[in-house]
Nucleic acid binder design. Structure first.
Ligand SMILES: [Zn+2]
Ligand SMILES: [Zn+2]
Ligand SMILES: [Zn+2]
Ligand SMILES: [Zn+2]
Lengths: 159, 159
DNA sequence: TAGCAGATGTTATTGCATTACATTTTTGGT
DNA sequence: ACCAAAAATGTAATGCAATAACATCTGCTA
């Protein structure tokens, strides 16, 4: 099992998270010949501002402030689409919000731990759990493409 | 494990599903002294029209047609809130839509099988899977309130 | 240098959900 | 039966999330 909950749900030097994520994104995009343009990188940087999911319109506001002129929805949504396609961010459906992926180089299913107190979201990837999900689906004769698991509760810090 | 996938993802006499759901809802509300008013029952009936999740604005249209006058959003959302609180329906966040719960009398976590072909959604309750989720969360020091698991893929009929 | 594909700018619209306040209906105590 | 409180419903307006459609620009390649 890999997880970023130790960082996400604790006090930590978050600039390291942010810098690491940006560096990794640049490396990954270079390797894939995908173009991490300034606009896309700016959105990714804003998303990594914290471990809390961010709404698209919040990003629009922040980006507008940063760039000194009014940024419109399609600009941000296009950047988000790119980042989603590259697996650099995830969308949290229950929140209509986006969060940075801490391990974009690894193919993985979606598994999030959402703390109702501090709002931070950690991501995990657990093969045993993915297996259990596959098994359950198989018992219903269901062929799995993918899944999204959101676990609500309290992180260790907030208990 | 309990599941309605045998019915939801196959040809079947769906009126029986609908009638059973309505009857059960009435019984449950009576037992709880919760008021399943005509408006609420009408919404529940519409939701049980099929095994596909329904959006709120679709319900608004259908209810308007049924009642012969313009029904406004808060009317439907209030009914939905009631039905959600009673566990008679669930919201599927990834679809912004609602679906009837086939076993509202049993306390359970959310686990849905969404067929990308036919659009039907089956619901399951699997203790072993709930356990696996709890275990995974526990390993991250996370105290679980609840979870929502949406599995995308193809149902047996559509494979 | 012409053409193309990808990326961005711009305007408008659609869909989903809630706030706030007025009115009506139901309920339980007298 | 009567009244007050609570619950439910009606109504208007608004806010937030996402997309459609079309124009323009940029960088690459033939
Ligand atoms: Zn961090
Ligand atoms: Zn991820
Ligand atoms: Zn049915
Ligand atoms: Zn259910």
């Amino acid at each position: 099992m890999i997880s970023n909950s130790r960082a996400a749900h604790r006090d930590h030097d978050h600039e390291r998270c942010q810098n690491a994520a940006l560096a990794q994104a640049r490396a990954l995009c270079q390797h894939r010949s995908a173009r991490l343009t300034p606009a896309r990188e700016a959105v990714l940087h804003l998303i990594w501002h914290s471990h809390r999911p961010v709404g698209a319109y919040t990003l629009i506001e922040q980006l507008s402030a940063e760039q000194g002129h009014r940024v419109l929805p399609p600009t941000v949504y296009r950047a988000l689409d790119f980042l989603l396609a590259q697996g650099l961010i995830h969308r949290i459906p229950s929140r209509n919000a986006f969060i940075g992926c801490p391990f974009p180089e690894v193919r993985h299913r979606n598994l999030f731990l959402l703390c109702r107190q501090c709002g931070a979201v950690a991501e995990c990837s657990a093969d045993t759990l993915d297996q259990a999900i596959a098994t359950t689906a198989a018992r219903a004769g269901f062929a799995v493409d993918g899944h999204n698991l959101e676990i609500d509760g309290l992180c260790q810090q907030c208990q």
